[in-house]
């Protein structure tokens, strides 16, 4: 439970999974402005020159979305297994061990209970810095467990997605997590508990094609890459240049695929607002489970 202690001890400013380069000064990855690290962190990893949203460490994300001191982790007891004995240029088992040590968590997700402007929620945050936030059996299991526990504890579920997709080192078992997570979300639907998904940069592949896009409400962060097939794959397939802004959050908003693009600073308020509105509606309804498929 080292992780839990670590969360309780401090409101983290720079977690180990901070992907921005170390040092006092960092460069905005979009406009290349020199930013004082402390400022960048204080601004939720948003460049104050151009508004670019840098990828954000999990701990800072949790701190930003939850009422102070309210987060209690659920995840951490489920550990990955190298079920296939997968080896590419490096054995998967070794790669896992190295990244686990660096991240201080067993896999690419943190889940837990929290208050969001007083609203009880379950929160799941994916860690892109952990093997690209890829979904193997553990990510699938933690999401399923969080969805089920949210149902039992009468909490809405907020998902912050960031992932390269299914984890190929776990083969078809990782593909099956797409169905597993989807099935586990049914308990929320039958209890009329809101499920709100936040798509952050990047959300791709099997994660986009399963739980991440099944939210009752789907928000995305500005300029986030959100897709099924990555731009490079599409380019190789069709041998054409892609339109400007293709597969970015604003593009998907125009295409009708997401509910809104929400700047990071407004995210917590907007999430709490929609959850509050949906729950207020559900509370006026006759109690009892919805039939499956309703």
């Amino acid at each position: 439970m080292a992780l839990e202690r670590w969360f309780r001890r401090q409101r983290p400013t720079r977690g180990d999974d901070d992907a921005t380069p170390a040092g006092l000064w960092v460069k905005c990855s979009a406009c290349h402005a020199q930013l004082y690290r402390k400022d960048l962190v204080a601004h939720l990893y948003v460049c104050k020159e151009c508004g670019h949203h840098e990828r954000m460490p999990v701990a800072a994300r949790i701190a930003m979305l939850t009422d102070e001191g309210s987060f209690e982790p659920w995840s951490g007891d489920v550990r990955p297994v190298d079920a296939l004995g997968f080896v590419d240029v490096e054995p998967y088992a070794e790669r896992l061990a190295a990244v686990q040590q660096k991240a201080g968590r067993p896999d690419a997700i943190v889940t837990g209970a929290a208050l969001m402007e007083g609203e009880p929620v379950a929160l799941a945050v994916m860690d892109f810095s952990f093997l690209g936030g890829s979904m193997g059996s553990v990510v699938g299991e933690e999401i399923a467990l969080a969805a089920e526990r949210a149902g039992e504890e009468d909490r809405a579920l907020v998902m912050v997605a960031a992932s390269g997709g299914a984890r190929m080192q776990e083969g078809a078992l990782s593909l099956m997590q797409m169905a597993k997570t989807t099935v586990a979300l049914e308990g929320l639907a039958s209890r009329r508990l809101p499920y709100v998904s936040v798509l952050t940069d990047p959300t791709t592949g099997g994660v986009t094609a399963s739980f991440a896009t099944l939210g009752d409400v789907i928000f995305a962060e500005p300029d986030a890459l959100i897709c099924f097939a990555g731009p490079r794959v599409i380019q190789q397939t069709i041998k054409q240049d892609l339109p400007a802004g293709f597969q970015r959050a604003e593009f998907l908003l125009r295409k009708g695929m997401i509910d809104d693009v929400v700047p990071r600073g407004e995210l917590k308020r907007r999430l709490a607002a929609v959850i509050g509105l949906l729950r207020a509606g559900a509370a006026t309804m006759v109690p009892g489970a919805l039939p499956a498929g309703a």
């Binding site: 550990r79 990782s174 169905a179």
Partner: peptide, 9 residues
């Protein structure tokens, strides 16, 4: 489908 996957708990 809920039981798909291999993990250690």
């Amino acid at each position: 489908f809920r039981h798909m996957g291999r993990v250690l708990v």
